[in-house]
C-alpha cells in the first residue's frame, strides 16, 4: 500500500519534471524545472529499493538519508522563494531568504548534521527507521535528526501561508492560478502537520507516509497548475 503510494507520487513528479524539459531547454524559468527535478530526486531517495542502491554506493552508512534531507531543504528553499516572490509577498521573501531565513536554514542544517554525525548510522535503512543500532541513546539522536529534517519545510510552509491565502482571496486572478494556490495550501498545511506528526502514537505512524505524499504532491501539482494557467493565458493571448 505504502509502496504503491510512494511509486505513484514518484511517477507524478517525474512526469511533471519531464513535461517541463522542453521549456527548460528554451530557457524559460529553469528554477521551476529545478524544483520538479529536486522533488523527484527527493522522492526516489525515500523509496526503499532506490535508497538501498544509492546508499550502498555511498558506503551503507545512510549518507543517502543525509543527502535526502539537504535535497529537501534546497527544494523547499527554492520553491518557497519563487512562490513568495510570485505571489508578491515581500515579507515572506524576507523570512525565507532574508537574514532570519538564512539563520533558520543554517541552524537547521547544523541541527541536522550534528545528531547525524554523533549517531551510529551504519546499516542501510530508508527513513532510518530500522537501524541495527537501537540503543536508546542512538534512537534519541535519530529522532532529533528527523525532527530537524521536518522543521525546515514546515518553517517555509508557514511563511507561505499568508501569500497563498492572499492569492486565494483575489478573485480576479485566473482560475487555474487560484486552484494551484489552493493545492499549494493543502501541501503547505501537510508540511506543517508532518513536523508535528512525531507526536502521533506509534501505531498511527504509517499516516506520516500519507502526510508526506500529500505535502510533496501539493507542492508539485500546485506549481504545475499555475504553470498550466500560464500556458492557457498564452494561448488566449495568441487567439486574440
Amino acid at each position: 500500500m505504502i509502496a504503491i503510494l510512494q511509486w505513484t507520487t514518484l511517477a507524478i513528479c517525474a512526469f511533471i519534471a519531464a513535461a517541463r524539459v522542453p521549456s527548460a531547454l528554451r530557457g524559460e524559468n529553469r528554477s521551476l524545472f529545478g524544483i520538479f527535478v529536486l522533488m523527484t530526486i527527493a522522492i526516489s531517495l525515500s523509496i526503499e529499493p532506490v535508497y538501498a542502491v544509492v546508499d550502498s554506493f555511498l558506503g551503507a552508512d545512510n549518507i543517502a538519508n543525509l543527502l535526502l534531507r539537504f535535497v529537501i531543504y534546497g527544494t523547499v528553499l527554492l520553491a518557497g522563494y519563487r512562490i513568495a516572490k510570485g505571489f508578491d509577498s515581500a515579507g515572506s521573501v524576507r523570512l525565507i531568504v532574508g537574514p532570519v531565513g538564512l539563520a533558520v536554514l543554517v541552524a537547521n542544517a547544523v541541527a541536522t548534521l550534528v545528531p547525524f554525525l554523533m549517531a551510529n548510522t551504519a546499516g542501510t535503512s530508508a527513513g532510518l527507521s530500522h537501524l541495527p543500532d537501537q540503543t536508546p541513546h542512538n534512537t534519541d539522536l535519530i529522532r532529533l535528526y528527523t525532527a530537524a529534517g521536518r522543521f525546515y519545510p514546515a518553517y517555509i510552509a508557514a511563511c507561505l501561508l499568508p501569500p497563498i491565502l492572499g492569492v486565494l482571496k483575489r478573485r480576479i486572478l485566473p482560475r487555474l492560478v487560484r486552484s494551484g494556490a489552493a493545492i499549494l495550501l493543502v501541501g503547505a498545511v501537510a508540511m506543517i502537520v508532518l513536523a508535528l506528526s512525531d507526536l502521533l502514537p506509534q501505531r498511527l505512524a504509517y499516516l506520516q507516509y500519507f502526510i508526506s505524499s500529500t505535502a510533496v504532491l501539493g507542492l508539485v501539482v500546485g506549481l504545475a497548475l499555475i504553470w498550466a494557467g500560464r500556458v492557457r493565458a498564452g494561448k488566449q493571448a495568441l487567439r486574440r
Partner: peptide, 14 residues
C-alpha cells in the same frame, strides 16, 4: 494592478 500581479506570478512560477 491585477495585470502586474499576474505578470509577477507568470514570471516566477510560469
Amino acid at each position: 494592478q491585477e495585470q502586474a500581479q499576474t505578470e509577477k506570478i507568470w514570471e516566477n512560477l510560469g
